[in-house]
Design a binder for these strands. Structure first.
Length: 553
RNA sequence: GCCGCUAUCGUCUAACGGUUAGGACACAUGAUUCUCAAUCAUGUAAUCGGGGUUCGAUUCCCCGUAGCGGUACCA
């Protein structure tokens, strides 16, 4: 057991360079000039270079909540694990989220720059701050030096496993908890590496009732682990940095992934020994994926859809992805969207207590539907702009076409987009080439054409007659009337119901006649409204396509 | 193993302790006399199991089971 004086002596010896006191630090971080309703939230990722769709989900929540309350949203980089860090990891996060329309009022802007008065916003540059608190804790005997080697820790773990007790550095297993002053000094002077651990006063038997903003009332056991606060490289662990940073930065409450839920009692104890006001948590459940009958977290190694780049490359509309994510967050979002088709998602009243408590399966089918609905609400001009933006990066051929044939492209995209019958067949921007290629002769040439099983002579007759009577100025009913006439003349039935009753009496129905024309013009059996397609393509192209088709028969 | 969280159609979910357990996606069928998409109509489909409490339980309690998370000098 060490005396109070001895602890103070150790603390001073440990951090001779630390001049500031805890009070000094707090003076550097004054209370924010905001009211209670204005939420200050943060997103605090590690710069691992990989932006997970779950990161977008979590940050979207903080972003919307802070925006709606007219508060602040900040980005803090947790780069205390030097082994996992990658180059330009910060830019990857900032730019990735920017692509999703999520920006920060405060925090890191890129590898070097930041914005805001509560920085530094990168933990490796806050070491002096952590040291002040660590020194304070050591001098008060609430933290201590631990010289246990990784091998010794492994031994303890093995012993605990064989004894069938909890693993970890706690209670009687915490060798250095009450080491004598002389022993500490001896090891310190010999230059042996050490960590600083929390001197836990918790009892695992005690239960704490607390409120999670998402899960509601929860009971957790008190922490009794002497967790590492400062690692041997002098950097803090997440457990130590989180209370300090979130307190100094004036965070309203913590939104974070559910994987942190289990360590909240540890965090609560650290808040307590630091004399900080406890912070509330909103633990957001992870996005899951069905795999061989079992549910599991979306994995960056196994699931391509875990990476944000997947959505970008495939051209999923960003707003659609965000809307889908909001759907998972608050399932009443879809009803709201139907009632407010024009409103931006910032206006949606996102409620933490409505979040799903367990993890939701990420459902790409549902995502497709949400994206399809989203795109159907856009104008042809907007579809054009978004598709162009996507193509610039991912489809050079489409980009060329869109750039050089802007008006024609918008006309194509406008087919069945206005009026009451809105077309809903574009899910993502990468679907656009399929919609457009038949309108461009060079692309059309490379397309795989579908064929009909109608007799060739009959097809020729129909098409020749169609060419004879074709007039570009025909209205849709006039146009269709001509097709009907051609059909009747060639033994097709004009009445669908009549045809259904006795199909043997006819060569087919009028739809079959239109189909010949469709295939001749587009090479496909399924297209948007044929009349509109013809209007957009123009007379010359129509005549050429049909002649070409007749010759190929 | 231990600790914790969670549990309603295939999926996301709704239901002051009293409902024929609702909606959306997906799926199936039909209607739309040019196909497809869309739209409209209809349909298939769920309270994990067992005990309590209660006149009455999807809802509250306990046990079990399952899924998830944690059990690091990673976050």
């Amino acid at each position: 057991m060490r005396t109070e004086q001895e602890n103070i002596q150790i603390a001073q010896l440990l951090f001779p360079e630390v001049k500031e006191s805890v009070e000094d630090i707090f003076k550097r971080y004054p209370k924010r000039n905001l009211n209670e309703e204005q939420l200050v939230l943060r997103f605090a990722p590690s710069p691992t270079g990989f932006l997970h769709i779950g990161n977008v989900y979590t940050s979207l929540v903080g972003y919307l909540l802070s925006k709606r309350s007219n508060g602040m949203f900040l980005l803090r980089i947790e780069d205390t694990d030097k082994e996992r860090e990658v180059e330009n990891g910060i830019s990857a996060i900032v730019n990735g989220l920017k692509g999703f329309g999520i920006h920060f009022d405060e925090g890191m802007k890129n590898e070097l720059e930041s914005e805001g008065e509560y920085g530094p916003y990168i933990q490796s540059q806050r070491i002096d701050i952590y040291k002040v608190f660590a020194r304070d804790l050591v001098s008060k005997g609430k933290a201590y030096l631990c010289f246990a080697t990784p091998e010794e820790l492994e031994e303890i773990r093995e012993k605990q496993t064989s004894m069938k007790v909890r693993t970890g550095y706690y209670g009687e297993f915490a060798k250095w908890r009450n080491a004598s002053f002389d022993e500490v000094m001896k090891n310190l002077n010999s230059g042996k590496p050490f960590v600083i651990r929390l001197y836990s006063n918790g009892n695992i038997e005690n239960k704490i009732n607390s409120v999670d903003l998402i899960k509601g009332g929860v009971t957790v056991s008190e922490n009794d682990m002497d967790a590492v606060l400062l690692k041997s490289d002098g950097l803090p662990t997440y457990h130590f940095a989180h209370p300090i940073d979130d307190t100094l930065m004036g965070i309203s409450f913590v939104t974070r992934g559910e994987e942190w839920f289990a360590s909240q009692s540890l965090h609560m104890e650290i808040f307590k020994v630091l004399y900080f006001k406890q912070l509330q948590y909103a633990h957001i459940s992870p996005l899951m994926k069905m795999d061989e009958g079992g549910k599991r977290k979306l994995s960056k190694r196994k699931d391509p859809e875990a990476a944000v780049s997947f959505y970008l490359e495939n051209g999923f509309p960003i707003e659609g992805v965000k809307e889908y994510l909001l759907n998972i967050a608050n399932s009443n979002f879809s009803d709201w969207r139907i009632q407010n088709p024009e409103k931006g998602i910032v206006e949606f009243d996102l409620k933490l207590e409505k979040f799903n408590k367990a993890g939701a399966l990420f459902d790409i089918t549902k995502l497709n539907d949400v994206c399809k609905e989203y795109i159907s609400r856009l104008s042809a001009k907007q579809v054009y702009e978004y598709a162009l933006e996507w193509a610039r990066e991912y489809d050079s051929r489409l980009f060329e076409k869109l750039t050089n044939h802007k008006d024609y492209s918008i006309e194509i995209l406008n087919i069945e987009r206005e009026g009451e019958k809105i077309r809903k067949d574009i899910v993502k921007w990468s679907d656009v080439p399929y919609q457009m290629e038949l309108f461009f002769d060079d692309m059309y040439k490379d397309m795989k054409k579908e064929s009909l099983d109608m007799s060739l002579d009959l097809q020729k007759d129909i098409l020749n007659e169609y060419l004879d009577t074709f007039y570009m100025g025909d209205s849709a009913p006039e146009w269709f009337g001509k097709i009907k006439e051609i059909g009747i003349k060639n033994g097709f039935c004009a009445d669908y119901k009549e045809y259904e009753k006795s199909p043997k009496k006819y060569k087919g129905k009028i739809g079959d006649v239109a189909m010949v024309i469709r295939v001749a013009i587009t090479g496909r059996k399924q297209t948007p409204d044929l009349y509109q397609v013809i209007q957009v393509m123009g007379e010359n192209r129509i005549r050429e396509r049909i002649k070409e088709y007749i010759n190929s028969l």
